[in-house]
């Protein structure tokens, strides 16, 4: 089973929910897909034992075969190639902008002269680790790189659906989030009861609905703000799965990297109940479709 934890707004408590849920269950595989800022390992204190490169294929041009026809430039949807034809004694050239390349392979496939081959370019790292029985994997996008989805896909390549897979997604509603959440059986949307929290929750709900993933909401810092998040959930028939109170000691533990369930054991049962509720919703969804 794959459960993704996402949120429109950043800083609502995705990692808090993901980490504590994971620590309350057995047979968990934890994937931190917030590759621009992975931080779950700080709370899980997982021992990272192995790493590999995260790569995308980028074109390499053999100018001895190139006729500067411009096909590669014309098929590149991301404007990562420029072709300057030869003229007035100046030889032609192909200019490659690998940081704009999405690694789609169209240029190699469609070059009429077979002048393009693909070479792997490292854009990040994937790190593997464990904590007790929990398997842990996260991605880390290299500084200066703009594209996180390939790193997220490489993390998700290692998914073991027979286990309880917990995916900590990046914030927002764009490509990285969609890449992280896609294929999940359920998505927990973490929010806070503020106008910002509500605004971004509405956007996140639109995303998961488009992906046909059942979702529910966890309201963090539940006793600040107003009742509009709950009113919205009611009107949209989205279950509010859990509320986490706004408490000084929770913030203090967080700042020390200590998960909630390790300081207040009662929360363990709360997170187990969250999991049971989610299983119920998934079974219901499956039986009615």
């Amino acid at each position: 089973m794959i459960i993704a934890i996402a949120s429109g707004k950043g800083g609502t408590g995705k990692t808090t929910v993901a980490v504590n849920l994971a620590l309350s269950l057995d047979n968990v595989q934890f994937l931190d897909c917030d590759v621009e800022e992975p931080n779950a390992h700080i709370f899980l204190k997982s021992h990272l034992s192995r790493a590999e490169s995260a790569v995308i294929p980028v074109p390499e041009i053999d100018e001895s075969k190139c006729t500067y026809c411009g096909t590669c430039r014309d098929v590149c949807a991301y404007h990562a190639l420029a072709v300057v034809p030869a003229s007035e004694g100046r030889k032609g050239s192909v200019l490659n902008f690998p940081h704009l390349c999405h690694g789609c392979g169209a240029c190699r496939l469609l070059c009429p002269n077979g002048a393009i081959r693909e070479v792997n370019k490292e854009i990040g790292r994937i790190e593997f680790g464990a904590r007790d029985g929990m398997e842990f994997i996260h991605g880390r996008l290299n500084i200066g790189e703009a594209m996180s989805p390939p790193v997220i896909r490489q993390v998700k390549y290692y998914i073991k659906p027979a286990r309880i897979v917990i995916i900590d997604a990046p914030p927002g509603t764009s490509c990285p989030v969609i890449t992280a959440v896609k294929g999940s059986d359920f998505c927990i949307l973490v929010t806070e009861p503020t106008p910002f929290g509500l605004n971004d929750l509405v956007l996140a709900v639109e995303v998961v609905r488009k992906l046909n993933i059942p979702c529910g909401v966890v309201i963090n810092r539940a006793d600040i703000g107003d009742g509009k998040v709950e009113a919205y959930c009611r009107s949209e028939s989205i279950p509010v799965l859990m509320k986490i109170p706004f408490k000084r000691e929770i913030a203090a533990w967080y700042s020390e990297g200590i998960p909630l369930v390790e300081r207040d054991a009662a929360y363990r049962q709360t997170f187990i109940n969250l999991y049971i509720t989610i299983c119920g919703i998934i079974n219901e969804t499956n039986s009615c479709c």
Partner: peptide
């Protein structure tokens, strides 16, 4: 264009 506007514009000029 979200990216590559300068590259494409330079191509147009050429």
């Amino acid at each position: 264009f979200p990216g590559g506007a300068g590259i494409q514009s330079a191509q147009a000029v050429i």
